[in-house]
Every structure is written in structure tokens, then in C-alpha cells.
């Protein structure tokens, strides 16, 4: 399962299409705010989380931003959730954002928008699912 967190529906549309074109056939859940995504994680049971799941997370989202979301995720105190792999996906050029992203143990990458099928095809989770 791939979870998209981005306030711009055009971008989640692009991400969904790019994932499909890149060979991903699994479930995609899109959330337009970090709070809604957090509610989802709060309610989810550990057994419901599929292997090779990950989050594509925008940084500059209104209200709760990407970093605040990760902090809140850690506080949920569910091991599966707090170790959920996260890719940041942003159009930010702020190098501090990148450095800050590296401080979270579950952040596995920093991707630049727009997501393309070439990038998707290179993500480890996708490669496994496609083969």
C-alpha cells in the first residue's frame, strides 16, 4: 500500500498515474491533509499493513506540515507505524529541509516533484512488487 499525503489534488493525481505507469499495481490511499492521514494511522491495525508499504509525503502542507506529521507519527507509539518508510516528495529547494529529513530514521529518500514513472520504477518497494 502506498499512502500519498499532499494538499494539491493535481499532484496526487500525477503521483497516482506515475505509480501506475511505473508498474505499481497495489493499493493507493491519498490524503489531502496530514491530520487526515494521522487519523487513518491511528485507527489502523498492525495486521492490516501490507509489506512494502510506504508514504509519499509533501513537506509544505497547510496546517500540519510534513515534519510535524512525522513527529506526530512517532508519538502514536505503534512500532509498525513509526517505522513506516517515508519518501519526502517536494518542490522545495531549501537544503535545510533535506538535512532535517535525514534526521528521521524512517525517511528513506527525498524525491523532487514531479514524480515520474522513471523515478517510480527505481523505488525498491515497486521493483519487488513488479517482479
Amino acid at each position: 500500500m502506498i499512502i500519498l499525503i499532499d494538499d494539491n489534488p493535481i499532484d496526487t493525481f500525477i503521483q497516482t498515474k506515475a505509480l501506475e505507469l511505473g508498474g505499481y499495481r497495489g493499493r493507493i490511499e491519498a490524503f489531502r491533509s496530514a491530520e487526515k492521514a494521522l487519523d487513518y494511522f491511528q485507527g489502523i491495525s498492525t495486521s492490516a499493513i501490507e509489506a512494502d508499504s510506504f508514504i509519499l509525503l509533501d513537506i509544505r502542507i497547510p496546517s500540519m506540515n510534513g515534519f510535524e506529521f512525522l513527529d506526530a507519527l512517532q508519538r502514536l507509539d505503534k512500532e509498525v507505524v513509526s517505522t513506516f518508510p517515508v519518501y519526502f516528495l517536494s518542490s522545495s529547494l531549501d537544503l535545510e529541509d533535506r538535512q532535517r529529513a535525514n534526521t528521521y530514521p524512517n525517511v528513506v529518500g527525498f524525491l523532487e516533484k514531479p514524480l515520474t514513472r522513471h523515478v517510480v520504477a527505481g523505488l525498491p518497494g515497486i521493483r519487488k512488487a513488479a517482479s
Binding site: I10, D11, I14, A18, E112, K113, P114, T116
Partner: peptide, 9 residues
């Protein structure tokens, strides 16, 4: 970046 993503599609 949104327009670029749409163009790729």
C-alpha cells in the same frame, strides 16, 4: 512541477 508532471503523463 504540476504542469511538468501533467506533461509527462
Amino acid at each position: 512541477t504540476s504542469v511538468l508532471g501533467l506533461l509527462y503523463l
